[in-house]
Amino acid sequence: MARICDEIDDENGNGNAFPMELLTQGADHAAVGLLGCLLVRDWPDGTHSAVRIVETEAYDQNDPASHTYHGRSERNRAMFGPAGHAYVYFTYGMHYCVNVTAGADGFGCGVLIRAGEPVEGVEHMTQLRGGRTGAQLTNGPAKLCQALAIDKSLYGHDLRMPPLRLVRASLKEGERIGCTPRIGISKAADRPRRLIIMGNPYVSKSPLNAKAVPLDTAGPMHGTQAKGTQAMQAKQTVADDNGGHGDSDGNTSCDVRIRRVYEEPSADDGLRVLVDRLWPRGRSKQSAHVDVWIKDIAPSKELRTWFGHIPERFDEFTSRYREELDANPEPVSRLRELIAGHPRVTLLYGAKDNEHNNAVVLRKYLLDTQVSQQEANTRK
Rank of each mutant, 00 (worst) to 15 (best):
L303F: 03
G184R: 08
P299D: 01
D241E: 14
R191P: 10
P207G: 10
E324M: 05
K235D: 14
T378P: 12
E21P: 12
P343N: 10
S153V: 04
Q286K: 11
D105A: 14
L39I: 00
N377Y: 13
Q25R: 11
Y92K: 03
Q233D: 09
Q236C: 15
A340H: 02
M20N: 15
D42M: 05
T138A: 02
P265L: 10
R313C: 02
D291I: 01
V273A: 08
V360W: 06
D249R: 08
S206M: 09
T305N: 11
L208N: 09
V54P: 02
T305D: 13
G15K: 06
G93L: 10
G13T: 03
R259K: 13
E323W: 12
A149K: 03
A327Y: 12
R260K: 04
C109A: 10
D247W: 02
G308Q: 04
A30P: 06
T378S: 15
W293R: 00
G174M: 04
T91R: 12
K380F: 15
D28L: 13
Q373S: 15
D296V: 00
C179W: 12
T91F: 14
R334W: 06
S170P: 08
N139T: 00
A78M: 11
L34I: 04
S170T: 10
R344G: 07
K211M: 15
V371C: 15
V361R: 07
P220F: 12
Y365I: 00
G341Q: 08
I258R: 02
L208F: 08
S266Y: 15
P311M: 05
D45E: 09
V261P: 08
T378V: 12
V122Q: 03
Q370W: 15
G156Q: 06
P162C: 06
G178S: 01
T346H: 09
A58T: 01
W306R: 03
H29M: 13
D353C: 01
P329L: 07
P141H: 00
A142T: 01
T126I: 11
K364Y: 11
S287P: 04
D240I: 04
S266Q: 15
Y349V: 03
I196P: 06
G350H: 12
K301P: 04
P329E: 07
Q236L: 15
H222S: 15
R114N: 11
I197H: 09
L166M: 06
L278S: 07
G33F: 12
V167T: 00
A58L: 03
D151G: 02
R320D: 04
E324Y: 10
G250C: 01
A359V: 01
T305E: 13
L278N: 12
K285Y: 09
E355D: 14
N377F: 14
R322Y: 10
D60W: 06
Y92C: 06
L22T: 14
P82W: 09
T91G: 13
